[in-house]
Design a binder for these strands. Structure first.
Length: 587
RNA sequence: GGUCUCGUAGCUCAGUUGGAUAGAGCAACAGAUUUCUAAUCUGUGGGUCAGGGGUUCGAAUCCCUUCGGGAUCACCA
């Protein structure tokens, strides 16, 4: 590419002018700041020690050298130590007309992305939405950058929390089912989870009134004892309990699948904790022999990580049962045995930073080479304007409700604008969904995953400015334009020379696509693609408001612009697809 | 208390690998359509980049420190 050519030339120039031999890595070149004239900017400060001249003189000498040796360089200007190289319009035009379909990158390594990983005792909420959108999007971005991606969902389908909703249903449910109540399965089960909590609290309250300490009351409340008993029965394979568990989990899966479908996320493989929770114990034995772990007098097994700046961590209880960490060690090994992925991402909230730090460290100490490929893709919590989401205070934003609300808002806004003449009812419904979800997904993905984000309901349903529908609008507008255009125009050769600066900017932005994909893949950040989509949409809108497309009289120019518009629409579509966002044909 | 993390315009966010006068959107105000979709575009105002120190030609970015928010440090998952 041209950037590389300029770098090479700079190295050569430094040798010819100052007899300096430098590595190409040392040449710093960047896109020229829009406030200045030029296309590429070379920073000359690092070269001053070779030239022994002022920054201005050095830049001028270098600029002159590049202008005479680089055909596409029209001229140059110098501001302080910054050398701005101006490239001919013809170069950008040639670049555009020789735009070949990007060759798909060769599929290199296998990457596993684990995300969603829900508990089967309550429905999904806003926090899960961020997780799901992030996981899906990162997977799509990695695919686009040439990885062989496997999407994994590790379902947390067992444990005391699951028993709580089972127990409450058994005691207070009167045989209620999703069919009999008309409730979505995950919501129904969630209802009993809440019911458990309510009843449990009143039991504790009663015990405290009888004079018990609060801690004692929490341990002795009958419901808690029963839930623990249920867990023991489950683990010993008690038929009745296992059947109840299967029934209620099936309800939840039915509900989750609907939500996943509405969100447009999918998985290549599911792991269930009920199948994996016993894994990892053998490894603990192995670790004991390797002296990675040590046993205490009571029989519990620990790892001492104090020399790594961490604490001591339990890996096996004194009664020989496994803890969270034990399971995760086992599951990590299982995952690697199953797929041998070079990289393995865990999309999990940042409240588990410490857990994963410890997990990966243990795996490394155990001598698993592949542990170096494990990465915790940690994301920040989602806050509401009222503060943190708290399930107990009823301030949780339910995923299904939110999706419905977004679609309803899209419908209201669309009807307000009244552009749906001639659309069938099905088409309209599809459009509302596309727009509503586009707004939601874009809103959540445009912020850096690592950062904690604020979910402002009013802003999230805004369809103007830096939003999903803003970008979708550009696509729809181009699409309806291209429908009118002659299909021959889209493949014809054109010969233009006089194009505007904003058209050049658009071409440059289009060419930035691959870099952005790679950057976004390297950083596991959909936010980079979201901002690229905005930049591209804005670049096009500027051109659109400045020049004519369909009404352009000059045939060559018209052909050029049609193709420019088409390329823009295609790039927007692939970019949004990486965010899991669809493009409507019209809106 | 230890560890990790964040702090940029009134609000929500960009600005990763040190570079020019710190940028968008929302909100406020002023404009643009006899025209291909105005869910658009153009402009104005708004900043001690939390405070202080250091590193250097140059710091929002790197280092130290103070302050402030959050997370985590369970024989829960």
């Amino acid at each position: 590419m041209l950037e590389q050519a300029i770098k090479n030339l700079t190295v050569k120039a430094l040798f010819d002018l100052y007899q300096a031999e430098i590595d190409i890595q040392q040449v710093k070149i960047e896109a020229t700041n829009p406030d200045f004239k030029g296309d590429f900017t070379i920073l000359t400060f690092p070269f001053l020690r070779f030239s022994k001249k002022t920054p201005e003189e050095t830049a001028n000498e270098l600029g002159h050298y590049i202008q005479t040796h680089l055909q596409d360089c029209d001229s140059y200007n110098v501001v302080k130590g910054f050398l701005n190289i101006e490239i001919s319009k013809q170069y950008w035009l040639n670049l555009f007309s020789n735009f070949s379909e990007e060759t798909k990158p060769v599929v290199s390594e296998k990457v596993m992305v684990e995300y969603s990983s829900p508990n089967t005792n309550k429905p999904l909420h806003l926090g899960h939405i961020r997780n799901n959108l992030l996981g899906y999007s990162v997977a799509e971005i990695l695919k686009a950058s040439g990885k062989d991606v496997l999407k994994i969902n590790l379902v947390n389908d067992r444990g005391i929390h699951i028993c709580k909703s089972m127990l409450a249903w058994q005691k207070f449910g009167n045989g209620e089912t999703p069919q009999s109540s008309g409730m979505k399965g995950d919501h129904l089960v969630g209802k009993y989870y809440v019911e458990f909590d309510k009843q449990y609290k009143s039991e504790i309250h009663a015990l405290v009134n009888q004079g018990l300490e609060k801690e004692q009351a929490e341990k002795q409340a009958p419901l808690m004892l029963q839930a623990q008993e249920m867990l023991r029965k489950w683990e010993s394979g008690d038929e009745e309990i296992v059947n109840l568990w299967k029934t209620m989990n099936a309800w939840v899966y039915e509900g989750f699948n609907q939500t996943y479908q509405a969100l447009g996320v999918d998985f290549d493989h599911y792991y269930y904790e009920s199948n994996t929770y016993l894994l990892g114990k053998d490894i603990v034995e192995e670790g004991l022999q390797k002296n990675v772990f040590y046993k205490r007098e009571d029989g519990s097994v620990w790892i001492d990580l104090t020399s790594d700046g961490l604490d001591e961590k339990l890996v096996l209880r004194s009664d020989g049962t496994s803890v969270y960490m034990t399971q995760d060690i086992g599951t990590a090994i299982l995952k690697y045995q199953d797929y041998q992925c070079a990289k393995s991402l865990y999309v999990v909230g940042n409240e588990q930073d410490y857990h994963f730090k410890v997990l990966f460290l243990i795996l490394k100490k155990m001598g698993f080479e592949w542990a170096n490929g494990c990465f915790h893709l940690s994301y920040g919590m989602v806050d509401l304007p009222s503060g943190k989401m708290k399930s107990r205070e009823g301030t949780v934003v339910d995923a299904d409700d939110l999706i419905q609300e977004m679609i309803a808002t899209a419908q209201a806004k669309t009807q307000e604008l009244g552009k749906t003449d001639g659309m069938s009812e099905d088409e309209k419904q599809l459009l509302y969904q596309t727009l509503g979800l586009g707004a939601l997904k874009f809103y959540m993905l445009k912020v850096d995953p690592q950062k904690r984000m604020l979910f402002n309901p009013e802003e999230s349903i805004d369809f103007q400015g830096d939003t999903g529908p803003f970008v979708q609008y550009v696509f729809a507008r181009i699409n309806s334009m291209l429908k009118v255009a002659d299909s021959k125009e889209l493949v014809a050769k054109s010969n233009v020379s006089n194009i505007t600066q904003s058209e050049i900017n658009l071409i440059k932005t289009l060419f930035d696509f691959n870099d952005q994909v790679n950057k976004s893949a390297a950083n596991y950040s959909p936010a980079i693609m979201a901002h690229y989509a905005l930049e591209l949409a804005k670049a096009f809108n500027r051109v659109y408001n400045e020049v004519s497309f369909l009404r352009e009289k000059d045939t060559d120019l018209r052909i050029f612009r049609m193709q420019l518009a088409q390329k823009t629409a295609q790039t927007i579509q692939t970019t949004l697809a990486m965010l899991g966002i669809q493009c409507p044909d019209r809106m």
